[in-house]
């Protein structure tokens, strides 16, 4: 599989990374180089192999249903680039 410029632009859009025309051109070559290289994985026989889920045997612990956190608004908002009162401000979203 190889990517063309349209695909690169589509991936950039999905990634929410603005990309210039020249960058897209350059990225086509870079991505294709990397993809061509990783595609050697296709030659591995993985019949009957389950994809790895946990690298070290461990089980998922579950937390008790107790309120132990939250109510830290100042900490949550401390680094906001556009704080509006008790809210984060973002450019107006029109539904």
């Amino acid at each position: 599989m190889s990517v063309d410029k349209d695909t690169v632009n589509k991936i950039a859009r999905l990634s929410r990374i603005a990309i210039s025309d020249e960058e897209a051109d350059k990225m086509v070559g870079e991505l294709n180089g990397i993809l061509a290289w990783v595609e050697q994985l296709g030659e591995v026989d993985v019949t009957g192999v389950e994809p790895m889920t946990a690298v070290i045997p461990n089980h998922l612990r579950l937390r008790d249903d107790v309120v132990t956190d939250g109510d830290v608004r100042e900490k949550v908002l401390a680094n906001a680039p556009a704080r509006e009162g008790s809210f984060f401000g973002v450019p107006k979203v029109i539904e």
Binding site: G70, V72, R73, F87, F88
Partner: peptide, 8 residues
């Protein structure tokens, strides 16, 4: 209150 039930 807005953003008062929010953890990091």
């Amino acid at each position: 209150e807005p953003n008062s039930h929010v953890s990091l």
